[in-house]
Write a protein that binds this DNA or RNA. Structure first.
Lengths: 215, 215
DNA sequence: TAGATTGTTAATCGATTAACAATC
DNA sequence: TAGATTGTTAATCGATTAACAATC
């Protein structure tokens, strides 16, 4: 395996490849070409080959990629050949939804603890997990070997929660609050912000204003 | 206003600028420089100036940008100087969460209808909205002037729902299901996929496997 | 005036795509 | 063998950043 700095764009495509490969496997497709993949995923075949070639020679000239083998390799690259433990803070509707969303994630990641600052939430059950108070976060992260933290609290509390996660030793954070978190460089943060998505979508609407303009 | 093809990267940053500007406004800050903004948002000041300059001369040399004026301009660019009507299909936990997530979106967008294919869901109330059957989607989209559709159904149903949205005349779709949707070129789709985010985060974890490796 | 900061051009950097020898 | 398809190099394209004249 080569050691080179892999761009974020490449890393973000790997889960997309993986997902489609799993589907192919389920349909008992044994082999797939970069051509096929590109067609399905709306990507340039050369890009797919190049992405994969960063990590090794996974294909066979004239043949393509062995589906099962490639799945195994991508899971290894993404460190998903183990079960990653995840903690979540914010037992609101969104937190609830994500806990249940284990559908096809469950072989690779598992939400093993849920926390909330609100006393009324503590002790309730979500998906067989007892909602814990924030005071238990640090110990639980260590005991349960939680490596990724999910933040589904209001924007005003997100930074504080992030700091507690970092303090407890979490290595990466997925943040759903619409704020930019400040964390040390060794902690990776991705922000999954619904409002940013919605607002940028609006840009692409046609120009005729259908409602009474405010301006 | 110049007419030039604006890259998606630029469009995705505009809502981030807007959000921070709103916060500045609330704190009664009158003026902001690209320097200040860059610091807060982790972006290069030149990039911010360039992004804004695509759309007009909004700043003043030696001074910076007037916060209120820039807010107004960005809202106009993003077509958020009107209230955009939104429809949602999939009244599960995630759909529920998004309906409630109107917090700071409510001046710009409004979810005005919720649909679900499951009979057991139809007729229940979410945030004062009656969940409607899919058979009412087309008419409601037209009557309510719904321009953006949100999809929060299982992956297997997402494509079918997208087609119904497109058929009904929706201009853009925000898709939460982990699939790549096929829609005509005039419809814009953004995919907000939780699993892709989580899986790509795992790549950045440290290399020591903390659980018993599967491999 | 002096200091600050924009808008914009030019330079740099990085990512995508094309092309093709190697080879199954 | 002929056709298909990889891995990789070179070409292209696009996005980010630096630099600076204009000017508040």
């Amino acid at each position: 395996m080569k050691t080179l700095k892999i761009s974020e764009a490449v890393v973000r495509r790997l889960p997309v490849y993986l997902r489609h490969l799993m589907e192919l496997k389920q349909r008992e497709v044994l082999t797939v070409s970069s051509q096929d993949l590109g067609q399905k995923l709306d990507l340039n075949p050369a890009q797919i080959r190049k992405d994969l070639a960063y990590f090794g020679d996974f294909g066979r000239k004239g043949i393509g990629y062995d589906v099962s083998y490639l799945i195994q390799q991508i899971r290894h690259i993404l460190k998903l050949d183990q079960i990653i433990h995840v903690g979540l803070v914010g037992a609101g509707k969104l937190g609830h939804a994500l806990c249940n969303y284990t559908a096809y994630m469950k072989d690779n990641m598992r939400i093993v603890a849920v926390f909330d600052a609100q006393e009324s939430k503590v002790g309730t059950e979500i998906n067989n997990l007892r909602v814990q108070p924030m005071s238990e976060l640090a110990d639980t992260v260590r005991e349960q070997k939680i490596r990724i933290g999910i933040i589904t609290v209001p924007a005003s509390e997100a930074q504080h929660v992030a700091e507690q996660f970092v303090e407890a030793g979490v290595e990466a954070i997925l943040n759903f609050a619409p704020v930019i978190l400040r964390v040390p460089a060794h902690v990776r943060v991705h922000t999954a912000d619904f409002t940013t998505d919605m607002f940028s979508l609006a840009y692409y609407l046609s120009d005729d204003r259908k409602e009474a303009p405010v301006e």
